[in-house]
Structures are given as structure tokens and as C-alpha cells.
């Protein structure tokens, strides 16, 4: 089945992404737990195909200040991954790694940015690892880029990247429980359409 846009993904394809999402989540929780030296659980994620405006509204208000970790994929699959972290998530991380708490993003210095970027990177890598294993593909990741900005502004980066091929985004949302406290986990997973087709071919067994 040839997909030209994310909207074309049928239920089988979406189930496949959910499967990858679940496994990736498991990996991410284990890896994070190791980094943060505390129990980390992640709920079974929801995989949604959303329009731009819907995606922003789901995550909050477009002017809300959030942080984002952006990683580019190359190799058998190319595309972009974006992990959105709000202040509460960042504080859970900083509490574990640096034993500190901040009241605003402007208090983030080099150490705080480094720790937050690392967490985003670990989560993204976990998903990519599960994806590459399941599909038996080689995927390379770029060095992560970190930004603190309005939510709407940050979201325009992956949106623009895929604007030529799709009006939709693929989002994996769930809850992350760090040391007993609940924070939202929001990952935008955007393989380009060629890669998505390649993935679907590798993962979805056609039934006669």
C-alpha cells in the first residue's frame, strides 16, 4: 500500500506505529531510569495523526513557553523527531540529576540545558532503536538541538519540514512517572513519506 501522506495510514499501519510506540516507551523508561537513578514508568502511548493546529492545541497554548529537543534521522529512515518538555518535566530531571529546582526557563544554565537535552535525546533514541530493530533497518541520529520558545513556534519546525507532503503530524503522547510524579511525554515522530512507505513495507505483513 503506497502512502503519500500521513492521513493515508490505515488502521494496520497505525497499529504498527503504536506497537513501535509501546516498545520504544519501554526502552525509554529503562534508559531514563538509569540516567535519573530513580524509578521511571511510562504509560502505554497514544499514537495520533493530527493537523498542525490540532497538535498545538492538544499540547497547550501556542504562546506557552516550552522546551524542545530536535533530532534528525538519516540512513534507512530519514526524518525528524521532536520531543516537547514542559517546565514540570524539566524540574523532575533537574531534581534527580542536579538536585535543584527552577521556577523559570531563564534560570537554565549550561548544565541544566545539557541534562534536559540528554533526556530528550535518550527518549528519542529509545524509540528509534525499537523502530530500527523491529524493521531491521539502520538509522543514524544527528546531534540533538535544544530550544526554549513558544510552543507554536517550536512546532513550526517539523511542520515546515513536512509541509510539502502532508498537512498532518504523527504524535506519540503519554505520561511519564518519575519518582512517583506524573508528567506529560509528547513526542513528534516524523519520518518522511518515502521512509514511512519503506517502513510499512518492512513491518506490515500483507494478508491475502
Amino acid at each position: 500500500m503506497k502512502i503519500t501522506r500521513y492521513e493515508d495510514m490505515d488502521d494496520t499501519a497505525k497499529d504498527m506505529m503504536r506497537e513501535i510506540g509501546s516498545i520504544g516507551t519501554g526502552n525509554a523508561a529503562t534508559a531514563l531510569s538509569s540516567l535519573l537513578k530513580t524509578g521511571v514508568e511510562m504509560t502505554v502511548p497514544k499514537v495520533e495523526i493530527l493537523g498542525y493546529n490540532e497538535a498545538v492545541d492538544l499540547l497547550g497554548h501556542p504562546e506557552e513557553i516550552v522546551s524542545g529537543v530536535l533530532v534528525q534521522m538519516t540512513g534507512d529512515v530519514s526524518g525528524v523527531m521532536l520531543f516537547i518538555m514542559k517546565l514540570d518535566f524539566i524540574n523532575e530531571v533537574l531534581q534527580c540529576v542536579l538536585q535543584e529546582n527552577i521556577s523559570g526557563y531563564e534560570q537554565m544554565g549550561e548544565m541544566e540545558i545539557s541534562a534536559s537535552t540528554e533526556v530528550g535525546n535518550i527518549i528519542i533514541s529509545s524509540y528509534i532503536l525499537s523502530l530500527s530493530k523491529l524493521a531491521d533497518m539502520e538509522i543514524s541520529l544527528s546531534v540533538p538541538a535544544f530550544s526554549v520558545n513558544m510552543l507554536g513556534g517550536i512546532m513550526t519546525v517539523p511542520m515546515a519540514e513536512f509541509g510539502y507532503v502532508s498537512d498532518k503530524l504523527m504524535m506519540i503522547t503519554g505520561k511519564c512517572i518519575i519518582g512517583g510524579r506524573n508528567v506529560d511525554s509528547n513526542l513528534l515522530m516524523l519520518p518522511d513519506i518515502q521512509s514511512l512507505n519503506y517502513l510499512m513495507d518492512r513491518l506490515v505483513t500483507p494478508y491475502e
Binding site: 498542525y52 498545538v56 501556542p62 513558544m150 510552543l151 513556534g153 512546532m155 513550526t156 519546525v157 509541509g163
Partner: peptide, 23 residues
């Protein structure tokens, strides 16, 4: 005015579009 959107107003109203990043 949302992302990839356009609106027109005449005489009254304030057109607003949020969080222009690379847009």
C-alpha cells in the same frame, strides 16, 4: 488566524496569529 491560514476584517476586530516561529 491559524497556521497556514488567512483572515480578513473590516473596520473592527483584531486579527491575531500566535507563535510565528519560522513562519
Amino acid at each position: 488566524v491559524g497556521i497556514a491560514d488567512m483572515k480578513i476584517a473590516r473596520r473592527e476586530g483584531v486579527l491575531i496569529t500566535y507563535a510565528l516561529g519560522s513562519c
